[in-house]
Design a protein around this nucleic acid. Structure first.
Lengths: 175, 175
DNA sequence: AACCGCTATATCGGACCGATATAACGGGTG
DNA sequence: CACCCGTTATATCGGTCCGATATAGCGGTT
């Protein structure tokens, strides 16, 4: 998962570990740890998906290899059915431009289905336990449902915009 | 973290592992794994915070010990300043009734501050990178901000309701 | 009786987290 | 200039948590 994120970021240009971490934070990984990032870099280096070169000063610049690009493409498309994991979902969305356009909508729809199932289950458990849980737990569960519903609405936006953008596919955009 | 959740649930009565997992799902831990639950149970058993007795059939019923209750209270209150971790925050909220009322509002306010900081940072990074990121990443970041803002609004509700409930503290509620 | 899906416990390797250590760099202060 | 301090930067360690997988009893169906 982190591997995919790192490879995706390095596709845009060489970077060192610290910078990589900050970019991950920008993407919404607020709590990503150096204890994850540096091991990931060594992992990817060992697999020869990235190359670490001594950059300016004490920094180590990492750049993606041809194998790395191929591997990135592979895990991006292959796991596009894995839609349960929120982090993995977000990483794939962040690198949507590298994903086959035909897969994109299917991917978003799958995610929507997962959320709908969760919402239904949560609503059920809210009804089932209504009089047994305290107001804090109740509020927690209700807020969970509301968040998931907001996510579904957002997915609907994304799907709609994806469909409209599809039509004028031949006119190349900047992104 | 999982330890706190397990102890908190077992405070309400004995349960077996499978049931425990389902209740965690109800609390919003959609992806909690058996590979986390069963090791947690053995961990807590070793520490004598819980006792496992052979229940009906092949089930193992676990019940909390006096030490366990004490430990639960400890980690619930002690870590109430640790408010960065979303899961830990939600677990504490789910067991708010066991938390010292004076600590509760402070706890919620701390969480609000964390979210506000994140929102500010995310807004900044949105402005900073506005023309460099594609529409998918942009939408991802925007949605992140919107979610966090919704969380803040929810926290405000919780704080308000906590304050009003505080006044009539002597009249005992069911919960 | 055979089969199937659900309940239930368990283990394993690996990913990820949180804390911590180390140190070089850049800027301001005396 | 020398000193200090906050930021940048890399690294490691123990422990938690995840995802996959194995095993098996249990209840209902055909």
């Amino acid at each position: 998962m982190l591997d995919m994120a790192v490879l995706g970021l390095l596709r845009e240009g060489p970077m060192h570990g610290y910078e990589l971490k900050q970019r991950l934070v920008d993407l919404g990984f607020w709590r990503i740890s150096f204890g994850s990032v540096y091991p990931a870099l060594r992992r990817l280096e060992r697999a020869e998906f990235i190359e670490g070169t001594p950059g300016s000063g004490r920094r180590k610049e990492y750049r993606i290899t041809a194998d790395g690009k191929e591997h990135f493409q592979q895990i991006l498309e292959d796991g596009a059915s894995e839609v349960e994991n929120t982090s993995a979902f977000r990483v794939r969305l962040a690198f949507f431009r590298y994903m086959n356009p035909e897969t994109r909508i299917e991917f978003l729809e799958r995610r929507k289905t997962v959320l709908r199932v969760r919402i239904a289950a949560a609503r059920n458990s809210l009804r089932r336990t209504a009089d047994r849980v305290d107001r804090y737990t109740h509020s927690l569960m209700e807020h969970g449902v509301r968040s998931a519903e907001a996510d579904v609405a957002w997915l609907d936006e994304l799907i709609a915009s994806e469909r409209t953008h599809d039509e004028g596919l031949d006119a190349p955009e900047k992104f």
